[in-house]
Design a protein around this nucleic acid. Structure first.
Length: 210
DNA sequence: GGCACGATTGCT
DNA sequence: GCAATCGTGCCT
C-alpha cells in the first residue's frame, strides 16, 4: 500500500517541522512576567521580512511590572502610547526613545495588567544588520520600528521560539539600566542576562558579570 | 500651541 | 561628559 506510506511520511514530516518551530504561545506570554523575562534568555527572536529571516539569540532582558513599578511606562497610566501593554499578552510594544532609537518589548501577563519585558540584546545567528547589543541597536539590527507596535507575536512575521538544541545557560540578574529616576524601583533586580555571553549590552555587563 | 525629557548610543 | 533628535505627556 504505497499511498499509506506516502501519507504517513507527509504527516511525520509536518509533525517534525512543527516541533522544530516550537514558537512561544499566548499561554506562555500570559504567565508571570519575571519568570518570562528569565526564561526568554536563550530563546530565538525571529523577524521574517518577505523570504528573508533575521534571527538572534536573546541574551539580555528587563521586566517592567506596571502600573505599580515606577520605572514602567505604564506607571503613568493608560495612554495612546502604552495602550498595547494593557491589551492581551504576546504582542509587541515598540516605542521611540531619544528621537533616535526604537525599543522592543513583549507584552506579558493577563490582559489588563500592563506588564512587559524589554528585549535588550541578541547574539547574532542569521541576517542581522550590525550589532544587537542594547535595545536600540537590537531594533536596528532586526529591522524593527514603529510599524511593529502592536504586532501579534503568535503570528508569522515577528516571533520568539525555543531553539531545537538548548544550550546550557547561566543566568545572572542585576538592577535595570537607565531608570534611576524611578527611585527604589530602580534597585529591583529585574534585569536578566546570560552570564557567559559577550553580546550583553555595554554598561553593566562587565561589572555585573564579575 | 509650547515645553521638558526620555527603558540610548557613540564620540570627546 | 555630552550631542543627536522627536514623540509623548502635561501644562497653558
Amino acid at each position: 500500500m504505497p499511498s499509506v506510506g506516502v501519507a504517513d511520511s507527509r504527516a511525520m514530516s509536518s509533525a517534525r517541522s512543527q516541533q522544530r518551530t516550537s514558537r512561544l504561545t499566548r499561554t506562555f506570554y500570559s504567565g508571570s512576567t519575571l519568570s518570562i523575562a528569565r526564561s526568554l534568555i536563550g530563546m530565538h527572536l525571529v523577524h521574517r521580512i518577505g523570504t528573508q529571516s533575521r534571527r538572534g539569540r536573546i541574551v539580555e532582558t528587563e521586566a517592567y511590572l506596571g502600573p505599580s513599578d515606577q520605572a514602567a511606562h505604564s506607571a503613568r497610566g493608560r495612554t495612546p502610547r502604552t495602550e498595547v501593554m494593557f491589551g492581551p499578552p504576546g504582542h509587541a510594544y515598540v516605542y521611540l526613545i531619544y528621537g533616535l532609537w526604537y525599543c522592543l518589548n513583549v507584552v506579558t501577563g493577563a490582559e489588563g495588567v500592563p506588564h512587559a519585558v524589554l528585549l535588550r540584546a541578541l547574539e547574532p545567528i542569521e541576517g542581522l544588520t550590525g550589532r544587537a547589543c542594547g535595545p536600540g541597536l537590537l531594533c536596528r539590527a532586526l529591522g524593527i520600528d514603529r510599524q511593529h507596535n502592536g504586532l501579534d507575536l503568535c503570528a508569522d512575521r515577528l516571533w520568539i521560539e525555543r531553539p531545537e538544541v538548548r544550550r546550557r545557560v547561566r543566568i545572572r540578574c542585576s538592577e535595570r539600566i537607565g531608570v534611576d529616576y524611578a527611585g527604589a524601583w530602580a534597585k529591583r533586580p529585574w534585569r536578566f542576562f546570560d552570564a557567559d555571553s559577550p553580546f550583553v549590552s555595554g554598561r553593566g555587563a562587565p561589572t555585573a558579570r564579575r
